[in-house]
Amino acid sequence: MSATLSRQFGRPVVTMTLFLVVSFLIVPVLLTFVGSFAGEWSGVLPSDFVTLRNWREVLGLTETVGSQRSMGWDSILSLGGYTLAVPSELIFSVGLALGGVLINLLVGVPIAYAVARYNFRGKEWVNAISVLPLVPGVILGVAFLRAYPTLSGTSFGLIVGYSLLKAPFMVMAVRSEFESMPLQRLEESARSLGASWPRTFLTVIVPNAKSGIISGAIICWTLAAAEFNFSYIVWAKGTQPLALFLQRHISNSSFTKAAAAVSMFFCIIVAITVLLQQVGSRGFDTRG
């Protein structure tokens, strides 16, 4: 490449690539959201605004049938004649993903600490195994069906599967946080002051790494809530995980209604991310 060419066009071309790719990634997201409020979407742009019909149908506020069936509603709280109900698919997936995150915390934080803090034989292997997904969801699903035929389709099976599939993301997030801390000094200070090693780990190391742990939890939660491949293979009956619910709408419903289902999912991801960040800056703070 000649020098003038490189000087003149290099930067604009690279910047243009960024703009184009970001548009490619984000424009359909925005269109989906806008389209979810449209009554009609058959021309270039959606039309017949603004209607909440798609959202009402998806959320199960309007009667629907067959494969376009909407979410069911579970009452979770009854108080003096009023019932607080939530869409069952939604709360089901939220719960499953939280269960997965809980297991991820229990398995991911300790192993991330082992890799970040200590030197031991086989450390590279432990590191590689803990940050690389073992198998994709489809294959784990087949393996679960075979190994645990009765358990695999239950909530418990889904939670365990999610936790294994998403564990690498927790380990990576927490490990990079640990690597930015003076781990050895912190551990040695606390122990010289009389804290046993387990107590040091729980009261000094873990609270100091909270930002990494929270971001790991956010990542794992969103990925588990959206998990499709594993769920598709093992899920048998009952309430559907959210991703299966989405797939049913994408494959069977009208375009605008599918757009509403997908938009609802966008909203959940954004809301949970913001919520967990709020918790991160207040709830975990020991200074109150």
Partner: peptide
């Protein structure tokens, strides 16, 4: 520190894959 991860890996990963 590695035990919890190893347990999950064995129960949810290694054993099912072995059965497959």
């Amino acid at each position: 520190l590695c035990a919890p991860f190893a347990a999950l890996l064995a129960i949810a990963g290694a054993y099912p894959l072995w059965e497959v």
